[in-house]
Amino acid sequence: MTYIGEIFVMAMSAIFIQNFLLSRFLGLCPFLGVSTRIDSAFGMGMAVIFVMTLTSSITYLINVYLLAAYPYLQTIAFILTIAALVQFVEMVIQKNAPALYKSLGVYLPLITTNCAVLGVALLNTTAVRSDGVTPYNFLDSTLNGFFSGVGFTTVLLAMAGIRQRLGLVKLPKYMRGMPIALILAGTMALAFYGFMGFKL
């Protein structure tokens, strides 16, 4: 397969077939927390794409060049890298986009504990290309991080769109908030299962 084809397969599976939120269950806390308004969902999504792409490339290098002899330090090294990166992104946004910083509020530091970010770093270490044997190289890992972030943001935005309208619906009190959000996510996951059939 040509490399372009490889990238296409990677993009499709990260965004639709193996979506981080709906089929891998990674990153659900921010998904349920920030998906009530489209603008904050968009900000969060962009921050996640950025952090996931950077994390994927940096953790790839750390894993290959530094951790080869100390594989048991993987979890600790990865989480520290992510924490440092998030701190950096937070400072950049605070300086350049104060309005966005205000609306994201407490959720930015929470990216550190977003399992999607650590998840993509860990998955990249064992991921293989579509031929089933070639392990991911530096570019593959970075792209996979980027596409996984795009998949996360796609679903986050769709969910925010639905939940914004949900505000106008009359619901029994006990269904409001979390329960209906989870049931909506389930329905979306069901829809995304339709992509499973694709053979790429």
């Binding site: 709906l22 089929s23 269950f25 009190k173 006990y174 269904m175 979390m178 329960p179 209906i180 959000a181 989870l182 049931i183 996510a185 389930g186 329905t187 996951a189 069901l190 299962y193």
Partner: peptide, 18 residues
Amino acid sequence: LAPGAFFTLGFLMALMNR
């Protein structure tokens, strides 16, 4: 499968609220 997880937790939480 994945959707079942969301449905189960959603309905359990609704039940708790009720």
